[in-house]
């Protein structure tokens, strides 16, 4: 397994954000991590990339314990946060140069990859503009390019399609699928269930910090006992979201 967690838990005082999470993700998988707002998705991803320290349990990337050997593990990881805060006063090219140096990418290789990535993301025209002038979608692209620059084994993406236009979202989907075809792994969280349904080889659903279900879409359908359902229906069933409650509240507002 390229990525595994065992009883991974994160507590903030009395609040348990993630509890006893057991995940296993193999090489070449495009793994979708789903859950309602505040379910613990971002906290989990931040623990997996070494930005947060688990309260208990452990996480391994390519067999390396992220808490025990963070630097070795991080060298194998690419990370794109939900709202990537970039250095506004750097150009995209300069930011990628910086990122490449941080990840010890040899200079000539770095420059070659930067040119290729800027072209891949249709940013070559704007590559020398400051990031402060970029739209959210363009920043997201730069962030993904930075994450790919050092050729990671596992790519973690937190809500990667937020702010992207349909064309860019499609482009990102293609890039991620190509990435997985090379035997590498993508672990991403999203709210857009249609994307997860079409792209992911396997899925995990988390709610209130606990793993609710994990498997292929077909496995999840079996779990709720209704084949042929969309992922949205499965998701709502497993996370206990009730449409009738919403309707009742809305009716109450009208009166």
């Amino acid at each position: 397994m390229v990525l595994s967690t065992r009883l991974l838990t994160k507590r903030y005082g009395s609040l348990t954000a993630v509890e006893d999470l057991d995940l296993e993700v193999g090489a070449g998988e495009l793994f979708g991590f789903l859950g309602p707002n505040g379910a613990g998705k971002t906290t989990t991803i931040k623990m997996l990339v070494g930005l947060l320290r688990p309260t208990s349990g452990n996480a391994r990337v390519a067999g390396i314990d992220i808490a025990a050997e963070p630097e070795a593990a991080k060298a194998l990881i690419g990370y794109v946060p939900d709202a990537a805060t970039l250095y506004d006063k750097l150009s995209a090219r300069e930011f990628l140069e910086f990122s490449g140096d941080l990840y010890h990418v040899e200079r000539r290789l770095r420059d070659r990859r930067i040119t290729a990535l800027l072209k891949l993301f249709d940013l070559q025209e704007r590559g020398d503009d400051f990031l402060s002038g970029y739209s959210r979608g363009m920043r997201q692209k730069v962030s993904l390019a930075a994450a790919l620059l050092h050729d990671p084994q596992v790519l973690f993406l937190d809500e990667p399609t937020v702010g992207l236009d349909p064309q860019s979202a499609r482009q990102m989907k293609d890039i991620l699928q190509d990435f997985c075809r090379e035997g590498k792994t993508v672990f991403f969280s999203t709210h857009i269930l249609e994307i997860a349904e079409r792209m992911c080889t396997r899925l995990a659903i988390i709610n209130h910090g606990r793993l609710v279900a994990m498997g292929t879409l077909q496995d999840l359908r079996h779990m709720v006992g209704q084949d042929g359902q969309t992922l949205e229906q499965v998701f709502l069933e497993l996370t206990g979201s009730r449409e009738e409650d919403v309707s009742a509240v809305l009716r109450g507002l009208e009166s």
Binding site: V49, G50, L51, P70, E71, A72, A73, K74, A75, I77, Y79, P81, T85, L86, Y87, F98, S99, L102, Y103, H104, A146
Partner: peptide, 14 residues
């Protein structure tokens, strides 16, 4: 570094 601190924190450096 501000909010961009994650860039360094996520990299394999001490």
């Amino acid at each position: 570094e501000g909010k961009s601190f994650w860039v360094y924190a996520a990299s394999p450096n001490s």
